[in-house]
């Protein structure tokens, strides 16, 4: 992608230049009053979003629907393939061709990696990837960047500590690569078996960033500007006792935040299970619910940019 996003597929954060990301974040900022319902917009009136969710999603699906509705457009689609022609064995390619004929932009969440790229090959209308298996989830990355920029006044130079399942978590792969594009300082905290894959570390190093690797949140939390927490999934551990031990060591509670800076911002892509204690919600550090809201203005920006409502 270069320059304008009009008509472009949004598949991977790697497809974006830094300038394009900055433009999306600027447009998203302008969308905030509309996203809150304080202002009305008919920017995408008469436009239809084809929303295809092959696996469950709460935030992503609802925030895309909210984004389209706030801009005056409408949404059609399904939130589980059962009952649709997909259940009868239709290929993704055929489903996409059909929805392409019924809508102006397609949002796709799929179980298989590469599904959005494939959809982009078969659709004439722009395709936005809302998560493909363990692969990419670029709109999550954009809303994370938006949140950091909003909360810290910028991204460059901030020390961002990412903690949790860094091996399998698709969110943290795209986010850390994007953060490296903006010159953020990165520390990855995870048990050794769930550390960031070498492939991603190498990619980050090509941008001149040397991420720190740690196994202890306590050792690094005092220096963090942003703490990005992700879930450690139980099914990654064959031994439940081992899971409890690891999960316990990476739980954020008031005790863990004792040495944290007053300005520390805590983020989480949600849903959380036990990695952030609910008592943290009441501290000034908690930003994960604001982060979830930010999905709406960011997705409004993307929808209006790919549909040509805004350059």
């Amino acid at each position: 992608m270069s320059g304008s996003l009009k008509g472009s597929d949004i598949v991977s954060i790697r497809d974006f230049s830094r300038e394009q990301i900055e433009r999306v974040l600027e447009v998203a900022e302008k969308m905030v009053p509309i996203a809150r319902g304080d202002e009305k917009s008919s920017l995408l009136e008469g436009r239809i979003l084809g929303s295809l969710f092959y696996e469950p999603s709460t935030r992503t699906r609802l925030s895309f629907e909210a984004a389209m509705t706030r801009l005056g457009g409408r949404t059609l689609g399904f939130d589980e393939p059962r009952g649709s022609s997909v259940a009868k064995g239709e290929t993704l390619a055929d489903t996409i061709r059909m929805v392409d004929a019924y809508s102006d932009v397609i949002v796709l969440r799929h179980t298989q990696e590469g599904a959005a790229r494939l959809a982009g090959h078969f659709a004439e209308k722009p395709v936005i990837n809302a998560g493909d298996g363990a692969g990419q989830h670029p709109t999550q990355t954009l809303l994370d960047l938006f949140t950091i920029r909003k909360e810290k006044g910028g991204i460059d130079g901030n020390h961002i500590v990412i903690v949790g399942d860094l091996k399998y978590g698709r969110t943290v792969h795209s986010l850390s690569e994007a953060l490296s594009m903006f010159g953020a300082e990165l520390t990855f905290v995870a048990p050794p078996t769930l550390q960031m894959p070498q492939e991603h570390i190498k990619h980050i190093e090509t941008r001149g960033i040397r991420p720190k690797i740690s196994n202890s949140l306590e050792e690094v939390i005092a220096e963090a500007d942003v703490l990005y927490v992700t879930r450690i999934q139980k099914e990654r551990f064959p031994d439940p006792a081992e899971y409890r031990k690891v999960a316990g060591a990476f739980t954020i509670d008031r005790e863990m935040l004792r040495d944290a800076s007053d300005n520390l911002v805590i983020m989480h892509p949600l849903p959380r299970v036990s990695e952030i204690d609910p008592e943290v919600d009441l501290t000034p550090h908690a930003r994960y619910f604001d982060q979830a809201f930010n999905g709406v203005p960011v997705r409004m920006a993307l929808l209006s940019m790919v549909l040509g409502g805004i350059e």
Binding site: T91, L92, A93, E113, A115, R117, L118, D132
Partner: peptide, 15 residues
């Protein structure tokens, strides 16, 4: 073929 069993190209898609 792609070595990733979760890749969409390993399903019955016309690509």
């Amino acid at each position: 073929t792609c070595s990733n069993p979760g890749c969409i190209t390993n399903k019955s898609e016309p690509v």
